[in-house]
Computed example of a mutant assay.
Amino acid sequence: MRKDIYQRLIALTEEEEKILNGEETVNKSLYTDDGEFIIDSKKLLQAGELIDIRRHTRFVDFPKHKHNYIEFNYVYEGKLTQTIDDKKITLKQGELIFLNQYITHEIEASSEEDIIINFIIKPEFFDYIITLLDDENIISKFLLTTLYKDYSEGEYLYFKVAEKKHIQELAEKIITELYEPSIMSKATIKLLVGLLLVELVKRSKDIETYSANNYDKLLIIQSLKYIDKHYKDANLFELSKKLNQPHYKLSKLIKKHTKMTFKELLQEKKLSKAVELLKFTEYSIVEIIDLIGYENPTYFYKIFKEKYGVTPREYRENS
């Protein structure tokens, strides 16, 4: 790590100075405006940003909380001890843990020598990256469920990679890019995070996994993967045949675990694909409507404006 960036990492923050001067608990207003302790990405990310980092606050116990984003904890120096569903985990220097939006955890006070980097990442950051990964690996399955924001089971992936120096080097490159952004930083960060995930996939034997509730998770993952691949002409009856499940049972499971119906999930996927095509291709709007599988342009315009507040043409111009 470059010396100037390292000095920024170890320097006391205003919050830490207050703690050392007698403030005994975390100031929750720095992290959320909600009555519950759900840390809000809006408090930590600048408007429009999908990823950033902050050093974990030292010298104080962090009480039970959740996030409305995906969090990676990376132990740059020292250790990190946290409790997830009564299970205590201590990460060593060089290790990482990925936490989805629904994990509840609490963190023991870190000492001055403990340098923990928290990556704050909105799920949509992974929309492109997930296409680079093999469908069947454990990280893809973790990311796939996080992309559907109403999938509500707490999960984590703990990477015991303290001895894998090339993984630490990648993490440090991402940190450096986030601390000193350039005109190409957004693209560079995506590529580096994608490369980090690919390297972690190769270390599947070093991964400890956890899910607060594994009930029928495999069926839900398969359903989400089916929608992801076949959004143009997907339908519940075809999916139920593929999974050898009654359609009514599958429908109830999807609603239970994602808080959305199959039709709503499919519509979300089609609209996100439409946005991708508007941003990154020169297809006409009529062509995009056909590519994502809508036959009624009027209906597409209606649901697009309901979700994004603008017409497809306005969205493309603003992008």
Rank of each mutant, 00 (worst) to 15 (best):
L191S: 13
T261A: 09
E153R: 13
P63V: 03
T81K: 04
A47I: 08
L157F: 03
I121W: 00
E276P: 06
V201I: 15
Q222C: 10
T57Q: 07
E276K: 08
E180N: 10
R316F: 13
K259Q: 13
L20M: 13
E108M: 04
Y299P: 08
L9F: 10
I292P: 06
V201E: 09
G194H: 00
T311E: 05
L291I: 04
L271P: 11
I221W: 02
H67C: 01
K279V: 10
T81S: 08
K202E: 14
E49C: 04
R55Y: 11
I129L: 15
P123E: 07
D86W: 06
L200F: 03
K122H: 04
G293V: 06
K273N: 11
D40T: 00
E106T: 10
T25K: 14
N73E: 05
K255N: 13
G293W: 07
D33V: 11
K66H: 09
L253V: 07
V201L: 06
T281P: 14
L197M: 08
A234K: 03
I220N: 04
A187W: 07
S152H: 15
L196R: 00
E95T: 01
L30C: 10
V275W: 02
S211Q: 07
K205P: 01
Y301Q: 08
E49A: 09
N244T: 09
I39Q: 00
E113R: 11
I107M: 00
D127S: 15
Q7K: 15
E14R: 11
F98S: 05
L197P: 05
K229G: 07
S185W: 10
E15W: 06
Y102H: 13
L96C: 07
F37T: 14
F126Q: 00
S272G: 09
E95L: 01
Y76R: 14
D34P: 03
E172A: 05
Q168Y: 07
F59P: 06
Y315K: 11
V193K: 00
D134S: 14
L250N: 05
E287F: 05
Y231M: 09
I107R: 03
E163A: 13
I207R: 03
H65L: 13
E24A: 12
K229E: 14
I138K: 11
F98N: 02
E15C: 07
I129Q: 10
K259C: 12
K79I: 00
S110F: 01
S152A: 10
N214G: 11
Y6W: 14
N27G: 10
K149Y: 09
T13L: 03
L243Y: 08
L253A: 04
L80Y: 01
T261L: 13
A47K: 12
V26N: 02
Y210K: 06
N235H: 14
V275N: 04
D290Q: 12
R316Y: 04
E71S: 02
G22T: 09
T83H: 01
T13I: 09
V161E: 01
K270C: 14
E77L: 15
I84A: 06
Y179N: 03
I220H: 06
I175T: 04
S223K: 04
E71L: 00
Q267D: 02
Y156T: 05
E95I: 01
I97G: 01
T13S: 15
